[in-house]
């Protein structure tokens, strides 16, 4: 495979590893857009998800808005905003946030709704405030689902952040766009491979993070009570 040799050549070239257009810089730029967009999306979506999950009100509305937002083509949102607001990071962030919000709302809502009503009643009966119920009962129990929503939002954002390069920003999309402009297939492929590697790294980080923050009892890793034999055969995957 000739193309593999060219790809290898791309990564072996020391010039690719330094400077403004170097791989480390591009990876950091890409991660920066992703992190920023994911943070904003979470700041918007998590409270909404918790609120509609807790009260049960506005769910139909929020879920449908979310579904509609999901069908918005990111590239269209991006070019439209750039034409309206000019080049810069804001249009990119808006396009990525639009992408990230729906999965986070949907999974947070589903997670909170899925909390056993008896558990919530028990918490209320013990005198917990509504605020306490949301943050100390519903949030921890819904955490596995919330994390899976954050994970899919992060993966979609990291993949789509490639389009930032189309509107003259950096990130790994630069290799794809620049490579296409001069028909340098190896460069395009290198960009694509790097994005895929980044996505897999993010996936792994989320898996590890999930293990750390999700309560042992919820994840079926409780050391105190051994689980009944019939249950131990079911998968403990919560994604």
């Amino acid at each position: 495979m000739n193309i593999l040799a060219e790809l290898f050549g791309f990564f072996a070239d020391p010039l690719r590893w330094s400077g403004a257009g170097g791989i480390p810089t591009r990876v950091l730029e890409h991660l920066w857009y992703t992190a920023l967009a994911l943070t904003i999306a979470t700041a918007i979506a998590l409270p909404i998800g918790l609120l509609i999950g807790h009260t049960g009100r506005g769910a139909f509305f929020a879920i449908n808005i979310g579904n509609a937002a999901r069908s918005f083509p990111s590239l269209g949102v991006l070019v439209l905003l750039v034409l309206l607001a000019g080049l810069g990071i804001t249009p990119v962030l808006v396009a990525l946030v639009v992408l990230g919000v729906p999965p986070i709302i949907a999974s947070t809502y589903a997670g909170v709704r899925g909390v056993d009503p008896a558990t919530i009643d028990a918490a209320r009966g013990m005198g917990m405030t509504e605020r306490g119920i949301v943050f100390k009962v519903e949030l921890p129990i819904a955490l596995p689902l919330i994390l899976s929503g954050l994970r899919s939002a992060a993966l979609q954002i990291v993949a789509t952040a490639t389009i930032a390069a189309y509107v003259a920003l950096g990130g790994l999309g630069r290799y794809v766009i620049d490579g296409l402009a001069v028909r340098d297939f190896a460069e395009m492929l290198a960009g694509a491979v790097l994005v895929a590697l980044l996505a897999i790294a993010i996936d792994v980080v989320f898996a590890i993070f999930g293990r750390l923050v999700v309560s042992d009892g919820l994840a079926g890793r409780g050391p105190r009570n051994s689980r009944p034999a019939t249950e131990s055969t079911t998968d403990q995957e919560y994604v």
């Binding site: 593999l4 993949a159 960009g191 994005v195 895929a196 996505a199 897999i200």
Partner: peptide, 22 residues
Amino acid sequence: MLAASAVLYSIPSIALFIVFPG
């Protein structure tokens, strides 16, 4: 199967669009 499906789904679309010609 779950693992394979998750990995495949996490590969960015633009990456696949470009990898396949090769």
